[in-house]
Amino acid sequence: MNKTKQMVLALVGVVVLYALLKALIVTGIIGPYWQIILNESMIYVIGGLGLSIIYGFTGQFSLGHAAFVGIGAYCAGWFAITFSHYGIWASLGSLVVGMISAGLVGYLIGVPILRLKSDYLGIATLGFNFIVYDGMQNSDKLSSVLGGAQGMTGVPQFQTFEWYFVTAVIVFILVRNLVFSSHGRAFTAIRENETAADVVGISPARTKIMAFTVGCVLAGLGGALYAHNYPYVNPDSFTFLESINYLIIVVLGGMGSMTGTVITAVGWTFLLEVLRMFLSLLGPSFINLRGVLYALILIVVIILRPQGIFGGMEASFLVPRIGRRKSNAAAGS
């Protein structure tokens, strides 16, 4: 299969997927509620790919990813509200604002904390998540638009599915190209063996910061979209527990697998919703079982497949012809 054919095939796949989803929406099989969930799943795809770069590919353990999603949501929301008289341009601009703000904060925080290794980095990012959460709780002191503990309302909404789908596809293509570039190989080298990275001339410090910043930019974009998908942006949506959701998406999907991250992001979002719906049908007291059930699912999957569902694997249409692997058998072990 040559390169052009590969690209055409992937493009056809995207269009077919879009047509399928659109048909389901137009015919009403996917109603307005589920469409918002579908949008949310795209947000998880974008934010999840961000964490996938940081943790899945580069191995930098972050327990604070939701903080960057939140920063993106708040900054984008503030921008979209403040400049709402520019209409759609304010919303488009807000996406860029979300990316830049989260990326900038990610860079500034990354420089000092990325010296830390694994668990210690996890604790530092966790701490950062708490700081950001407190900041959001008190954000009304900075600007009344942000709403503080009461949450931010009034962000112009656009729940059209195309926005989310197209953005997710663009992000996915960019991430795919990054992963298979020399930067992507540098990420993997850092994850697996920093000495190997050092001896070929990769700067571990610079590469980690780059991966972290790019990951945070994507988190910010996810957050910006979030602010446009839900009329109410609340600090509680960006707690440490939300960071765990992102971590689950990356780990369950499989470290170092974009395919895994995307499928798990969509799957996880819908699983949570289906569980919620199913349990509430059983009665109001059953809804609390949701946490237990999804934790159980998590435990079972991770026992059966410790390397994650797609650990070390990629859908074959993504892999450049020249680098295609003969066997993925040993990748996850």
Partner: peptide, 19 residues
């Protein structure tokens, strides 16, 4: 040796040309 086990032989070699 410090080979990157999850990259292919070609990818490992290309890594050598990183600079």
């Amino acid at each position: 040796r410090r080979i990157i086990g999850s990259l292919t032989v070609l990818e490992n070699l290309m890594m050598g040309a990183y600079i």
